[in-house]
């Protein structure tokens, strides 16, 4: 079963038109074509006749959920891929958004995004929360997400060498941070000089530290959407570290981020009988 992009686009346009015409929302956030280059870009529309500018295709890689934080006080409809809905569920769990201000147009049976390596690991494919859906839902039983990772097979020294090679290319543009739905802090630790966490130069040691710290901030919150990797201009495997923590959370605590607007985040919760592997006794 494959969803047709043309049909998805038409359905999205229909929902957007109705919502704007009836005045149910002030704004629709979706994907559109950039006027001159024709590239896919986030699109914000406020009038019903603009709704035919909305599109959905395999190039719609950006995570739109993050834009919702800019419109907290107005009523917004959003075109949401399954990963976007997980991000929205996390925001709701963290009390950052009001559910009553949101209209979520979910993409059912998301066919995946071209060039995004996270999509083959996707365990969802259908929106976790929605008001309307476009397309046909995928049967969970049909899914066979890849869970194995070749990095797990390597020795520690090989992995260190791998990450050194990857992070040595980092130019500290912070595109991964800007793309990530988790990174909404008003002041990032990288910009803080009191306390001073990590140097801003592109020395390997600072790059490595930056990526470790970034990943640690995403522990138990990363939804493994691949937006960071798609955003990276150097093609660095920036998703490897947070994705590892996602697997650890799944194995040790049976925890998946962003599956339920009511759930607590992994690190703001505990269980008295939590495992403690690697602790000295």
């Amino acid at each position: 079963m494959e969803n047709n992009y043309k049909k998805l686009t038409e359905e999205i346009r229909g929902f957007a038109f109705e919502l704007l015409k009836d005045g149910k929302v002030d704004r629709v956030i979706g994907y559109g074509k950039e006027e001159y280059s024709g590239e896919v870009t986030p699109l914000f529309i406020t009038a019903p006749d603009e709704s035919n500018r909305l599109i959905f295709n395999s190039e719609c890689s950006m995570l739109l959920a993050k834009y919702l934080l800019n419109y907290r006080e107005s009523r917004v409809a959003i075109v949401a891929k399954p990963c976007d809905t997980r991000a929205i569920a996390s925001y709701l769990a963290e009390n950052l958004l009001k559910r009553e201000n949101l209209v979520i147009i979910g993409i059912n049976g998301c066919p995946g995004i071209t060039g995004n390596t996270a999509c083959i690991e996707c365990t969802v494919r259908n929106p976790v929360i929605f008001d309307f859906t476009a397309g046909e839902a995928i049967d969970k039983a049909e899914l066979s997400p890849r869970v194995a990772n070749e990095l797990e097979e390597m020795t520690a020294a090989e992995r260190l060498a791998y990450f050194q090679e990857e992070f040595s290319r980092c130019i500290r543009c912070y595109a991964c941070r800007e793309a990530c739905y988790v990174c909404y802090c008003e002041e990032c630790f990288t910009d803080s000089n009191q306390p001073f966490w990590v140097g801003g130069s592109v020395k390997l040691k600072d790059n490595f530290t930056f990526h470790l710290m970034r990943s640690m901030h995403m522990a138990g919150r990363c939804i493994n959407c691949g937006a960071c990797e798609m955003a990276c201009p150097e093609g660095i495997d920036v998703r490897a570290l947070p994705a590892k923590l996602t697997r650890v959370a799944r194995e040790l605590y049976n925890y998946e981020a962003g599956m339920d607007p009511e759930q607590k985040t992994l690190l703001t919760d505990y269980d008295v009988n939590d495992p403690q592997p690697g602790f000295l006794d």
Partner: peptide, 30 residues
């Protein structure tokens, strides 16, 4: 319950550091 929150954090941190290639012996919690 401060140490309960800390425990989850440290487990995640240790997994992260060992995955990134830091030897397990350097990161000790007790």
């Amino acid at each position: 319950d401060g140490n309960m929150y800390a425990r989850r954090r440290f487990v995640m941190l240790k997994e992260l550091l060992t995955f990134a290639g830091v030897e397990e012996e350097r990161v000790n919690f007790t």
